[in-house]
């Protein structure tokens, strides 16, 4: 069977192709700046999309292309989820979100996804033609032969872009960190983040944070956000400091080997999801903990 992958990111598209190319024949459609880099992963064809890269333009073009494919896979990003929704409604086809597994059983799709905000894993059998794919679906694997690239023009968009600003990432990759110290709203203000510096040093850790810390207050860059809508991490040690442990956060750090939590609220849900917990004010606990580790 034939499948199309759409993504604005060649890295994410490559994960899907690498994970499923043994069961499906893939073409991949990407904005033109991603076409070269996605051509190394074994897709039969790369479709390079030229034009104003807005949701409706992608949605219309992909809906047209779907005449020739059995499935559409879209890695889960803000734009990806919108485009997947657009295509499923335009074609009147069933969609399934955030899949981490895919197989074809008796000509239906069998998929696994997180549900209840990460509190459960559901297996679904459906007529789905459109699927969004959770990050980290598979490791991208390059192949020796490059895909052929064809260029297509995007239709006009009903949305105008007034201005655009790239976000500066820090280049940090918390997904590969062995030890993570993760801070939450409990840290109080940006200036207080330095309280964890000695702890980071003592445990040779990488700094990460909850969604409010990274997105709302922007105390940390977005590439340090752990959770359902951030990064999924699996370090040996995850130290949650001033994080309440809402389910959407837990979904990003469940793969950690040892979880330590520091929180002044004894009833914080993080204490249900940790191996070792210290109930106390982080500003008192952290210096003492550093002394204990270094001592």
């Amino acid at each position: 069977m034939k499948a199309l992958v759409f993504s604005e990111s060649s890295t994410l598209a490559a994960q899907v192709i690498s994970g499923l190319k043994s069961v499906l024949d893939f073409s991949v459609a990407v904005p033109k700046d991603q076409a070269d880099s996605v051509s190394e992963y074994g897709a039969k064809e790369v479709i390079s999309l030229d034009g104003n890269p807005q949701m409706d333009a992608f949605g219309k073009k992909i809906s047209e292309l779907m005449n020739s494919y059995d499935f559409l896979f879209v890695p889960s990003t803000v734009l990806g989820r919108e485009v997947a929704g657009y295509v499923s409604a335009a074609l009147g086809q069933i969609s399934v979100p955030e899949i981490s597994k895919f197989e074809i059983v008796d000509s239906k799709c069998k998929t696994s996804s997180l549900s209840l905000g990460g509190k459960s894993i559901i297996d679904i059998i459906s007529d789905a033609k459109v699927l969004t794919v959770a990050p980290g679906f598979a490791d991208p694997v390059k192949v020796s032969e490059k895909s052929k690239i064809s260029v297509m023009t995007l239709p006009d968009s009903s949305v105008s872009v007034i201005s655009e600003e790239e976000k500066k990432g820090t280049g940090v990759n918390i997904e590969s960190a062995k030890v993570i110290v993760s801070i939450g709203r409990g840290i109080g203000k940006k200036e207080s983040i330095s309280i964890v510096d000695p702890l980071l040093k003592a445990v040779h850790g990488e700094l990460a944070g909850s969604r409010p810390v990274c997105l709302d207050y922007q105390w940390l860059s977005e590439d340090r956000q752990v959770g359902l809508s951030g990064k999924k991490v699996n370090p040996n040690v995850y130290i949650a400091v001033g994080i309440s442990g809402q389910i959407q956060h837990i979904a990003g750090m469940r793969g950690s080997k040892i979880v330590v939590a520091i929180n002044r609220d004894k009833s914080a849900p993080i204490f249900e999801e940790c191996d070792y917990g210290i109930v106390g004010d982080l500003f008192q606990v952290i210096p003492k903990l550093v002394a204990a580790i270094n001592g």
Binding site: S76, A84, G85, Y86, A89, S95, P97
Partner: peptide
Amino acid sequence: TFSGFLSGQLSAILGEPL
């Protein structure tokens, strides 16, 4: 559910920009 489908779906059905 975390799906994020609805806004794109409505844009396609209603023909309104998202």
